[in-house]
Design a protein around this nucleic acid. Structure first.
Lengths: 152, 152
DNA sequence: TTAATTCCCTATATGACAGATAGGTTTTAT
DNA sequence: ATAAAACCTATCTGTCATATAGGGAATTAA
């Protein structure tokens, strides 16, 4: 299971990225909308800013906007910010490789091999699909009224 | 990352399943071989027995053998014993479904959708590949001397 | 029958981490 | 000035991972 923290981060990112171009979304608004503890969410948004994903504007009529386009932010990237390495074994992480203490031979380790397959399969989704993709899918499924009319 | 407990369980299972037919492997032997704390490993093997995967025999010349054939024991099954549900979100778990408290609409949730894809991909490996498969792979890669000779 | 061996069971300890909660400070628009 | 917003740091609480500990019960070799 992923942490609440990560789930809150996704909720917030989707909300912020879905806002009209240039329009800032406040932490209070997101917190209210999804019943997320406000102070907790503030920490999360701070992390996303420090990671270079969000841009913040302080003071009245401040809030958050995307720093990078939503379709350059993968689910995997966000998840790693809050969960650390996604690899099921330390010896499978590229970013923070660590040998298993009890490992005899890494190249012959069947555990590593099987979990490597599972991880590859998972990464193929998480590191490919982006916040932008998710928003586009949502838009396809629930088109705006205008588009409704146009399509009949 | 999976827990040490789960990793130890896989090491033990592979060792026990690799032993000659009918020959029991002791917890002490596995612990020594992989430098696993013995008392900790005992608990783990107990869990595997209670889960109906291992059979135990007490007393001198006792130990553990597979209760079910190794190729009917999937990595996913074992992992669930020690880690609980593998689903990244409670609302994606078949075995122990739970709604996310902050969920507005499950069918429209993009987070659920994306993680559902990742989970499907991961399950396709973990619930398919078995301890038996892993042992067969190991045997292919490092054949016995007799087979070495036969093959030239 | 005795001693050794092995699994079996339960309790406890400890440090890390998740999931907040709290209380402020700084910046900015009006 | 004032209100609204982000920013920063500390603290708390319960749960969990990772063992450690100490024996009890069954089995078997001698």
């Amino acid at each position: 299971m992923i942490s609440n923290k990560a789930r809150y981060a996704f909720r917030a990112l989707l909300a912020i990225a879905a806002a009209p171009e240039g329009e800032a979304t406040t932490s209070a608004e997101v917190a209210r909308r999804y019943a997320i503890p406000h102070k907790f969410l503030e920490q999360i948004l701070l992390d996303l800013r420090k990671a270079g994903i969000l841009e913040s504007k302080r003071g009245k009529s401040g809030g958050y906007v995307m720093l990078r386009p939503a379709d350059t932010v993968s689910f995997g990237e966000v998840l790693r910010i809050f969960e650390g390495p996604l690899a099921p074994l330390p010896c499978l992480s590229r970013q923070s490789y660590r040998r298993c203490e009890d490992c005899v031979s890494e190249t012959h380790c069947e555990i590593r091999k099987e979990f490597g397959r599972a991880y590859d399969a998972s990464r193929a989704v998480l590191d490919t699909r982006t916040i932008g993709d998710a928003l586009a899918d949502a838009a396809d499924r629930a088109p705006s009224r205008r588009e409704d009319r146009r399509a009949g």
